[in-house]
């Protein structure tokens, strides 16, 4: 069986913990994982002229994030069919549903403990996910009051104490 799942990310290690949990939720399925980076589209005409999603991804993706992704892929190389990063600009429930339909998403996983930071022009799609009719699961760390001690450190990917 194969499944395509969507997980929001803001290029922090913390957001990738959800990936780990989502994989453990689907023990016998091969997964196509789509990491979704949501941000508002630029206002500048020149930037729009040279618009490229890859450029946006490269701009935000740092070495630690790359390493974390390859750690996860190495760990679950049997289960992960593919892992891609997509950029999303729609600020509404409808456009999120359209995006999910277009990318043939089966399920959305969001984190209970970690909210996507709404800094610069990026935004959190969790409220839209909750409002939509799409099947979604909210995943929590060991307990509900958990918070990460250091930000964007690779340790956060592993089992935390």
């Amino acid at each position: 069986m194969q499944k395509t799942i969507l997980i929001p990310t803001d290029f922090t290690i913390e957001s990738l913990v959800t990936v780990k949990q989502a994989i453990s939720q689907n023990p016998d399925t091969k997964l196509n994982i789509v990491l979704l980076y949501s941000c508002f589209i630029t206002d500048s005409i020149t930037d729009l002229l040279f618009y490229s999603p890859d450029k946006i991804i490269n701009e935000h993706c740092h070495q630690n994030f790359h390493d974390a992704i390859s750690i996860i892929r190495n760990r679950f190389s049997e289960k992960i069919e593919d892992m891609t990063i997509e950029v999303f600009h729609g600020y509404s429930v409808l456009s999120l549903e359209n995006f999910a339909k277009k990318n043939e998403i089966d399920h959305i996983y969001i984190s209970k403990n970690y909210a996507i930071k709404e800094v610069k022009n990026q935004f959190d799609i969790a409220p839209f996910v909750k409002k939509s009719n799409f099947p979604y699961t909210e995943l929590a760390q060991l307990d509900n009051n958990f918070s990460f001690s250091q930000t964007d450190n690779l340790i956060n990917l592993f089992n935390t104490l």
Binding site: D67, S70, I71, N74, R75, L154, I155, N159, L161
Partner: peptide
């Protein structure tokens, strides 16, 4: 207190993280 030793492998590196409280 508990000490956690984590191990993971990225594309070209082996990563060991030792965390204490």
């Amino acid at each position: 207190k508990p000490v956690q030793i984590s191990i993971g492998a990225s594309q070209h590196q082996l990563i060991i993280i030792i965390k204490d409280a």
